Lab assay of single mutants.
Amino acid sequence: SADYSSLTVVQLKDLLTKRNLSVGGLKNEWVQRLIKDDEES
């Protein structure tokens, strides 16, 4: 899986927004959300 934890907050928020995922919570929660989205898609 991609190394989301190395991305900036701005990059992570951009990815979350593009995938229609929530940008609520902490940075590590966003990373988990993106990883989960990868596994489900």
Rank of each mutant, 00 (worst) to 15 (best):
S1T: 14
S1M: 13
A2K: 13
A2W: 11
A2F: 15
D3M: 07
D3F: 10
D3I: 08
Y4H: 03
Y4N: 03
Y4E: 04
S5V: 09
S5D: 14
S6A: 11
S6R: 12
S6W: 08
L7R: 01
L7W: 02
T8Q: 05
T8Y: 00
V9E: 15
V9C: 14
V9Y: 04
V9L: 12
V10K: 12
V10I: 11
V10Q: 15
Q11R: 01
Q11N: 03
Q11C: 05
Q11I: 07
Q11W: 00
L12N: 01
L12Y: 00
L12P: 01
L12E: 02
K13I: 15
K13Y: 08
K13E: 09
K13N: 07
D14P: 01
D14N: 09
L15N: 01
L15I: 10
L16K: 01
L16N: 00
L16C: 06
T17K: 12
T17V: 14
T17D: 09
K18D: 10
K18L: 09
K18M: 09
K18Y: 03
K18Q: 11
R19A: 04
N20A: 07
N20L: 07
N20G: 15
N20V: 01
L21M: 06
L21S: 03
L21V: 02
L21P: 02
L21N: 03
S22R: 05
S22H: 09
S22K: 07
S22P: 14
V23Q: 13
V23D: 10
V23A: 09
V23W: 06
V23P: 07
V23H: 14
G24P: 04
G24Q: 15
G24N: 14
G24R: 08
G24I: 14
G25Q: 02
G25E: 03
L26D: 15
K27E: 11
K27L: 13
N28C: 12
N28K: 07
E29F: 00
E29R: 02
E29T: 01
W30V: 05
W30M: 15
V31Q: 03
Q32G: 09
Q32P: 06
L34S: 02
L34E: 02
L34R: 00
L34Y: 01
L34N: 00
I35F: 06
I35P: 01
K36F: 09
K36Y: 08
K36M: 12
K36R: 12
K36N: 11
D37H: 13
D37L: 06
D37A: 12
D38A: 05
D38L: 07
D38M: 05
D38G: 03
D38V: 05
E39A: 11
E39R: 10
E39G: 08
E40P: 06
E40M: 13
E40A: 13
E40K: 14
S41N: 14
S41D: 09
S41G: 11
S41W: 12
S41K: 15
S41E: 09
